[in-house]
Design a protein around this nucleic acid. Structure first.
Lengths: 231, 231
DNA sequence: CATTCAATCGTACACCGTACGAGTCAATCA
DNA sequence: TGATTGACTCGTACGGTGTACGATTGAATG
C-alpha cells in the first residue's frame, strides 16, 4: 500500500532571495508552495463552497498546471484537511491567566471558534469528518488548560470538553446550514404551508423562523458552563 | 430554470394484483418504486458510506438500468434527502403523556435520535447540510410538545429545542467521526507521539483515548436538562 | 561537463452524474 | 378492433472529475 507516495513534503525552495520576496517563475508568477496552495484553497472554498473546489480551478487560480499540485499535496482530501486546519490557526492569544475570570476566557475561546466556522461555513461541515489537525488539537489543549485552571478535575475533563465541543459544533453546523437553506425561499415557503397543520408547536413558537441564533448559543452555553463540575 | 423536470412523483403502478404482491417485471425482479430505491440507498449508504453511493451501483442492486432511477428521483441529491428522512421514520411511539416524567420521555427521544444516527453514521454528517424532511420535522414537533407539556414557555422554546438539538447533533457527529478515524490506527499512533509533548493536558486526561462517549453524552444532557428554564 | 533531484506540467484514463431519445406495455378511447 | 396515450424502462453518449504516468526543466552538485 502506497509505496511510491511522496505526499507533500512541501519543503519550500531553499532559494535565497535578497528580501523576503518569494521565489518566482520566469513568467512573473510566484512559485508554488504548500502555503500558497492552502491559502488559495481556503479562498476558493469561501467563494464556491465545499463542492465548488476543483483541482483544475485551484491550479488555474494559482497560475499552475493541475498536476503540479500533486507534487505538494498527495490528493484532494489532503487539501481539505490542510484548509480546515489552516482556518483554525491562532492569530493572537492574549491568554488571560486570570483564574477568577476563567469563564470569560472560555466563552471568548468558544465564540472565537464559532466565529471562524461561521466565517468559513464549509469548515463546520468538514470538521466532523476529517482528522484533527495541529491547530485544532492546539485549541483543545488550550481549552483543557483553561478548564483545568478553573478547577475542573481531570476525571471530569472529558465530559466538560466534549460537552462544550459538541455544543459549539452542533450549534454552528446547524446555523450555517440554515443560513444556506434560507437562500432558496421556494422550499421555505412550501415547507411553511405544511407547517401550520402538521407541526402546530413548531409553528406557534416560530422555531424555524425567528431563531435568534447568537442569543440561543449564549444561553445554552451558559447553562452548560453553570453545570460544569468544579472542585 | 427547470422547465421539464418531472422529478419523482413516484406514484406506484396502479397494477391490481391478487395479493399484496408488488408488481414484477417479466424477469422476476420486483419493479422499481420510490420506496425500493430509498430502502436500497440506505442499505448502500450503511455498507459503503456517504461517497460510496453511486447511481450505477444503486441501479445494479435494484436490478434496473441506471437511467430508470431518474424517472423516480430527479437527481442524486434527492436520493440523499430521501434516505436521510427515511431513517428517521417513527417506528412506534409509546408516547408517555406522563407529565411528571417528562424528563424520562425527552431523554428517551434524544437517545433514540442518537441511536439512529450511530446506526447510520452517514446520516449524522448529512443532517446538517440537507433540508429537514417530514420525519425530522415530526420529531422536532414531538419534542416541542413534550417540552411544552413539561412547562417550558413558548418564549424559551427556541433556546431549549436548539440547545438540545445542537448538543445531540454535535455529540453524535463527533462520536461517529471518531469511530471511523479509530479505524486507521496508523494516524492514531502518529498523533499519539506528538501528543505527549505538545498537548500535555490532552494527554494527561486521555481525551482522545478513553472517552466514554455514552456516559459523556448522558452527563452533558443532564446538565442541559437541569438548566432548562421551566415555569 | 555530467549527474542528480526538486519541481512543473501535458496527456490520457477511468469513473462519475445525467441529458436525450427510443423502446415497452397496459389502459383508454374512437 | 385498431389507434392513442402515458407511465415507465433503459442504452448510448457527453462533459466534467480526480489523478497515474512519464517527459521536461533548471539549479545545485560532483
Amino acid at each position: 500500500m502506497a509505496v511510491k507516495r511522496n505526499g507533500g513534503q512541501g519543503k519550500r525552495p531553499p532559494r535565497v532571495e535578497a528580501t523576503a520576496q518569494a521565489g518566482r517563475k520566469p513568467g512573473g508568477e510566484p512559485s508554488l508552495s504548500l502555503e500558497r496552495i492552502v491559502a488559495t484553497a481556503v479562498e476558493l472554498l469561501d467563494a464556491e463552497g465545499i463542492e465548488g473546489l476543483k483541482m483544475r480551478q485551484l491550479a488555474d487560480r494559482l497560475g499552475a498546471g493541475v498536476m503540479s499540485l500533486y507534487w505538494h499535496v498527495g490528493n484532494k482530501e489532503e487539501v481539505f484537511d490542510l484548509a480546515l486546519d489552516a482556518v483554525f490557526a491562532f492569530l493572537d492569544q492574549p491568554q488571560t491567566d486570570d483564574v477568577e475570570d476563567w469563564r470569560k476566557g472560555v466563552v471568548r475561546m468558544l465564540e472565537d471558534w464559532r466565529a471562524i466556522m461561521l466565517r468559513h461555513p464549509w469548515s463546520a461541515s468538514l470538521l466532523p469528518r476529517r482528522a484533527l489537525g495541529a491547530n485544532i488539537l492546539g485549541r483543545l489543549e488550550t481549552m483543557s488548560e483553561a478548564l483545568s485552571r478553573a478547577g475542573v478535575a481531570d476525571a471530569d475533563m472529558n465530559v466538560a470538553i466534549w460537552s462544550l465541543w459538541n455544543y459549539v459544533l452542533g450549534a454552528t453546523v446547524t446555523r450555517a446550514s440554515f443560513a444556506l437553506s434560507d437562500a432558496d425561499q421556494a422550499a421555505g415557503q412550501e415547507r411553511l404551508s405544511a407547517l401550520s397543520e402538521r407541526y402546530p408547536t413548531i409553528e406557534r413558537t416560530r422555531l424555524l423562523l425567528d431563531s435568534d441564533w447568537d442569543g440561543t448559543f449564549r444561553k445554552g452555553l451558559d447553562v452548560l458552563l453553570d453545570g460544569l463540575p468544579r472542585g
